[in-house]
Amino acid sequence: MNAPDPAVREYLLSLADDEHLMGQQHTEWIGVAPFLEEDLAFASIGQDELGHAAALYALLVGDDDRAIDDLAIRRDAADYRSCHLVELDTADWAEALVRHWLYDTAEGLRWRVFGESTLPGLSGIAARAEREETFHRRHADAMLDALLSVPESADRLTAAFRHLLPIAVGIFEVVDGEAAALEMGVASASVANLLPAWQDLVVARFGPVDWQMVAPPAQDGRRLRSADFAARYTRMREVYMLDPAAVW
């Protein structure tokens, strides 16, 4: 497989790493979500995100499982391009649920820029992912509908929303490689251009927001890892690193 253009690589990693980390975070809820059915559903949704990440990684390194693993979990931390929202560790279910909504609402918008992509395979991956995301968003909305109707739950969700909203805006921070990727026709729009549509959806769901007061995280073009990343990085590699040469 030919080495991908470095700019395209960086641009694809900004979505692939988000999907990968989001999947890692969601699957942590297996066994500990508030009720059995949700526990399994949430982890299953996380598994879909891992599938999207694997498909994007495969565009960069080919279908070989070991090459995909190497890219997914054997890179230097500095080479990740995840946003801070997906790196955030939380043991708070309200935060996990609000993040699920904020992230998947953005994710739906992000896949739609690949319909006419010049990168072979990408439009197909996007179409498949978006078919799954429809159900992820319905799941997030149905959970919020049920819980926002209960005052105590609504208070917790509102607190989670206030905490996460500024961090979530970091989803729309572009990487340096994006400009070249757009020029090559990999995508039809910058991720930054999707922000207004996302903001409208956020307001429709959670009510008015004073966006002037919402300060995005300092991510340095997604080159800067947040405080929670190191522990996540260790945790998601811990089995693999026991014997990196093992054949699965």
Binding site: L36, E37, L40, A41, Q47, F135, R138, A146
Partner: peptide, 20 residues
């Protein structure tokens, strides 16, 4: 079988629990 708060949530949970 499963427990859910309403029909929509039941459908979505059933999808992930029994048909994933």
């Amino acid at each position: 079988s499963l427990e859910a708060a309403d029909d929509e949530l039941a459908l979505l949970l059933a999808r992930e629990n029994y048909a994933r």
